[in-house]
């Protein structure tokens, strides 16, 4: 049994958001550069150039990549042999988020859904906690902007629609989104489970290093095929036309019910921010 103060969790959450909001990952930067080489549309190339310049500037000036610093999504894998001490871990996470959004000059974008009163400190966070074997804690911070979140979709398909139906639903989601989610996008997909688990898988798939294929050969092949179909839509960077609509498609799956075929598509903009730390 390992003892771990929740203060460590708070400080790690803080550091992860401070970094994630301002420093785009090498994975995304690499894909932006790569697509700049192949993009046929002059607008497309201009947008990609601006995004690369923006990301460089943000890191240099420790400024948010995008003004929408999102809702604070956190994945936490808690080793079952860890004993958390010195307070409430949930409170510690919220405090980490609150401090990061204040100190980083990040935007407070969170409010009551009905009254629309802003909570002013970007809490509450959206926390996905899992208990796993071992005595480590893995934390991933993934601030999520709503331009892309709003373009997400849940499809409760019927089994008869099969793999073709799944692929069509994914491509259709991207087509309907057009320029709204700030393409080039990363398309996160969860297939199977229940309605809520499908979306959780879709969100989780976005924490994978951008452009790394799935370990499952069947899913990896689907990801490759879908990326091509999506880029053939012509939407392009910012929806102004071009060949780079998506940087990557990430899929996760799990068994589902005999009567169902849930497909969740969580859209992620080019500001695909995710930082991980292991304590």
């Amino acid at each position: 049994m390992r003892e771990l103060s929740v203060k460590r969790i708070e400080d790690t959450v803080y550091a992860l958001f401070m970094s994630a909001c301002c420093e785009i990952g090498e994975d995304v930067l690499f894909l932006l550069q790569k697509n700049l080489q192949t993009e046929e549309s002059p607008f497309g190339r201009e947008v990609l150039r601006q995004l690369i310049e923006n990301d460089r500037l943000a890191a240099e000036k420790k400024m948010p990549i995008c003004q929408d610093t999102g809702m604070a999504v956190i994945f936490m894998d808690l080793g079952q042999d860890v004993h958390l001490t010195c307070g409430d871990v949930n409170e510690a996470i919220e405090t980490g988020v609150r401090r990061a959004y204040r100190d980083g000059c990040f935007r407070a974008s969170v409010l009551s859904p009905l009254t629309r009163f802003n909570t002013k400190d970007n809490t509450p966070a959206i926390v996905h906690m899992r208990i796993v074997p071992g005595e480590q804690v893995t934390l991933t911070a993934a601030p999520k902007g709503f331009g892309s979140e709003n373009m997400s979709r849940l499809w409760m398909l019927t089994p008869s629609q099969g793999i073709e139906g799944v692929k069509n639903a994914i491509v259709e989601t991207v087509r309907l989104a057009g320029g709204n989610p700030c393409p080039p996008v990363v398309v996160g997909v969860g297939i199977g489970g229940t309605a809520e688990r499908a979306m959780q898988m879709a969100k989780h798939s976005l924490t994978r290093e951008c452009g790394t294929p799935s370990d499952d050969p069947m899913l990896a092949e689907m990801e490759r095929e879908l990326l091509e179909r999506i880029n053939n839509l012509g939407i392009g960077p910012q929806g102004l036309g071009g060949r780079t609509t998506a940087l990557a498609v990430h899929i996760e799956q799990m068994p589902t019910h005999i009567a169902g075929l849930p497909v969740a598509v969580n859209m992620q903009c080019h500001a695909a921010r995710h930082k991980t730390a292991v304590i």
Binding site: L51, E53, N54, I65, Q67, S109, G145, C182, A271
Partner: peptide, 27 residues
């Protein structure tokens, strides 16, 4: 159309900013 997600870059074109209404709305 301005470039979505280029917030840091666009900020370099802004020379001054002043709230003129609805201050309670924050951002």
């Amino acid at each position: 159309a301005a470039t979505g997600g280029a917030g840091a870059l666009i900020a370099t074109s802004v020379k001054s900013a002043e709230v003129i209404a609805f201050e309670d709305l924050g951002t």
